[in-house]
Each structure stands twice: as structure tokens, then as C-alpha cells.
Computed example of a mutant assay.
Amino acid sequence: MGHLAYFFQRRNTVLLIQAGAILLLISTALTWVAVDAPGVQPVELSGAAMAPIVRTIGMLAVVAGVLITLFRGWFRGALGAVLLGGGIIAGIAVILAMVDPVAAASAASAVNGAVEAEYSTGGALWAGLVGSLALLVGSLAVLLFSQSWDDEAQPGRAADRRGSAR
């Protein structure tokens, strides 16, 4: 467990959370499902149209990543728990859209279950899945390792403390 604790120091964990949040935000701006029905204009449904909660979780994760660097103690644990729940919810939303694009598109489109329509998933779903996994891993790292983070050591300050002690 020592190597994991070393890898999941505060900087790496926050970077992982921020990367997951950015991937979620990017994926919601891109096409998740394209619907091509005869006699109707092709419809491209973005992640924001299909699962607005995923965009909200992405924005929440950006803010939580910043707050994790500023606060310590039980507040970090609470943020880690919120991010864990958000990562699970975002992952479920993305997986549901991957597994059954017809049902996911029918809920968000005017082409409600057209029988002859062709449904195709976009690559942005994979970005959303990777983003939700990054949030899950980052939030677990916060919950497991944040108590061992050195909150006093900041770049440039160690030299100042050594110099003032002389």
C-alpha cells in the first residue's frame, strides 16, 4: 500500500480529479448518440441533452478538486464521498447510453423510438466513461490517503523555514 500512497499524493490526486472532470465536461459537449430516421432530419444528441446530470457532476468535480487543495480533515472526506457518488452516477449514465442508445435517445429526442431509425453512438461516450472512472479513482484516493498528505509542505516554503531557523 506504500507505493499507492506515494503515487496518490495530493498533487497527483487533484490532477486525476481535474482530468476526470474535464473529460466529463468535454464529453457532454460532444455527440453521444446520432439518430438517422427516414423522412426526418438526422439528429445528433449531445451528452448535455441526454444526461444533464453528467455536466453538473463535471462542474462539481472541478470545484471539488480545488477545494480539496484548500481544506483538510473531515471536509476533504466529505468532498471525496460526494465525488465518489458523482463518479458512480456519471458512470451509470454513460453506460446506460452505451448499452441502450435507443432508449437513451428516445428520452431526449423528438424521434421517439422510430422503428426504422438507425442509432449510432459517438466516441464522446468513451471520454465520459474514462472521466467517470478517473473521478472514481481520484475520490477513492482522497478517502484513503488524504489523511497522510503533508499539508504544510508547499513548494518554496521548505527552504524558507530552514533558512529562518538558523
Score class of each variant (00 low, 15 high):
61 A>H: 05
44 E>Q: 15
5 A>E: 15
69 T>C: 14
46 S>V: 02
12 N>A: 04
3 H>Y: 04
24 L>P: 05
71 F>D: 00
32 W>C: 02
10 R>G: 09
29 A>S: 08
45 L>Y: 14
40 V>N: 08
25 L>D: 10
59 M>Y: 12
72 R>Y: 06
52 P>W: 13
65 G>Q: 10
55 R>Y: 08
6 Y>T: 14
33 V>A: 04
41 Q>F: 07
72 R>F: 07
59 M>W: 13
36 D>H: 05
5 A>V: 03
9 Q>H: 13
52 P>F: 12
76 R>W: 07
66 V>A: 14
53 I>L: 14
37 A>Y: 11
10 R>Q: 08
73 G>A: 09
23 L>V: 10
55 R>V: 05
55 R>T: 12
68 I>Q: 01
77 G>H: 06
36 D>K: 05
7 F>M: 05
21 A>V: 13
35 V>P: 01
73 G>R: 09
30 L>Q: 14
18 Q>S: 10
76 R>C: 10
51 A>H: 07
32 W>S: 02
9 Q>S: 15
9 Q>V: 12
31 T>L: 00
67 L>I: 08
73 G>H: 11
50 M>H: 13
24 L>Q: 03
9 Q>I: 07
59 M>P: 00
64 A>V: 11
68 I>W: 02
40 V>A: 10
46 S>A: 10
11 R>L: 12
70 L>V: 13
64 A>I: 08
11 R>T: 13
27 S>W: 04
59 M>V: 15
69 T>K: 12
55 R>E: 11
6 Y>D: 15
35 V>L: 03
78 A>E: 03
32 W>H: 04
29 A>V: 01
32 W>T: 08
12 N>R: 04
49 A>F: 00
76 R>I: 02
68 I>G: 07
5 A>W: 09
13 T>C: 01
55 R>Q: 14
60 L>G: 10
28 T>C: 13
33 V>D: 03
